[in-house]
Simulated scan of single mutants.
Amino acid sequence: MAHVQLEQLRKVYPDGHVAVAGASFEVADGELLVLVGPSGCGKSTLLRMVAGLEAITSGHLRIGGRLVNDVAPGDRDIAMVFQNYALYPHMTVAENLGFALKMRRMPAAEIARRVADAARTLELDGVLGRRPAQLSGGQRQRVALGRALVRQPQVFLLDEPLSNLDARLRASMRVEIARLHRQLGATMLYVTHDQVEAMTLGQRIVVMHEGQVQQVDTPLALYRNPANRFVATFLGTPAMNLVGGRLLREDGWRLATGEGSALPLPEDVAIDAGLEGREVQLGVRPEHLLQGAAARGFDAVVEVVEPMGSDVHVHVRAGGTALVARLAPESLPEPGATVRLRIAPAQLHLFDPASGVALTPR
């Protein structure tokens, strides 16, 4: 396997559209790194640049230490798995798995060995004689993975490989891919718009927005310490609550939200004294709005209750501010009821209203 280095990689189309604006990060040897972001953020374009399917406007791309900007896709020693399985319908599973090796004129015995190894790894032993039309969606996806696996490339590139599957299959295939990565120790660059896939699969995650890399870190570090408002609200379901207002320090920190309303902040909150009187956006995740009587709490009126089984998403309004709290299913309030909420200590975030940059220590 090999590591991948991107240095100020940039893609500008002839019409002037900047699809990728100076992406810089590394994929370590044997790492599974996930590119995540909304549609149109440039993540698939970036993956295609690594694959050699998109020309690089500027910057440097190295695979295994070798500069590959002008190297043809077939000579980069990478294998790509697409959203569309792209299997040959007239070929059996075994023939699909071994086709690329056959085109390289590899000895038949070596092809058979690699196909058998891949089939055993992906639990396809019993369907090698079937054609794609006779397979389930999950089996077809495993064949597409196996076709990349038999090539034994330096780097695996996966472009939203699970998006065509239903929720149950996506969950099971996430486990398959994570297990496969641990077994192979392979270098993988994985693209998805699904934050659940990103958080559960990635050893590290690259969050992208409008062609720019927003933050690169481990899943929990991104969730707990977002660098800006976009990262904070993109990761997490339900999304982080955002409340605009002015920070005041009257009998403890408060956020004045207008019309005489204010949200009291926890007593031990760490806020720079220089932010007093400044307009900010306060961010708090739904699970960090706690129910129960508290001196630094506030009353909120329940508007909508969404039972989720393991927890309950409660939409409330506090002094004109809409919030979502994730509560235990044991405390199921009725719409119209008033609940007492408080913000969990050390679990709030502050963002600059204009730039979105985090103002709280990371």
Rank of each mutant, 00 (worst) to 15 (best):
8 Q>V: 02
12 V>S: 03
15 D>T: 08
21 A>S: 13
22 G>R: 11
24 S>M: 07
25 F>L: 15
27 V>H: 08
28 A>Y: 01
31 E>F: 01
31 E>K: 10
33 L>Q: 05
42 G>M: 00
42 G>F: 04
42 G>L: 07
48 R>Y: 12
62 R>D: 08
62 R>Q: 15
67 L>Y: 06
85 Y>N: 03
90 H>S: 13
97 L>E: 10
100 A>K: 04
104 R>G: 10
106 M>Y: 06
108 A>G: 11
113 R>G: 00
115 V>I: 12
116 A>R: 14
117 D>F: 13
121 T>Q: 10
124 L>H: 02
126 G>M: 01
130 R>M: 04
131 R>F: 11
132 P>H: 15
135 L>T: 01
135 L>H: 00
136 S>T: 10
152 Q>L: 02
158 L>R: 01
161 P>C: 06
170 R>G: 05
175 V>E: 11
176 E>N: 02
182 R>E: 13
196 V>L: 13
201 L>H: 05
202 G>R: 03
203 Q>M: 04
205 I>M: 03
207 V>F: 02
213 V>F: 10
215 Q>C: 04
215 Q>H: 15
217 D>R: 02
217 D>Y: 09
217 D>P: 01
224 R>P: 00
232 A>G: 01
240 M>G: 04
241 N>M: 07
250 E>L: 13
262 A>N: 08
264 P>Y: 10
267 E>Q: 15
271 I>C: 12
275 L>T: 04
279 E>R: 13
280 V>D: 04
294 A>W: 08
295 A>V: 11
298 F>Y: 12
300 A>S: 09
303 E>S: 09
303 E>N: 06
308 M>H: 04
314 V>D: 04
321 T>F: 00
324 V>T: 15
326 R>S: 14
333 P>A: 14
339 V>E: 10
345 P>G: 07
348 L>F: 08
352 D>A: 08
353 P>Q: 12
354 A>E: 15
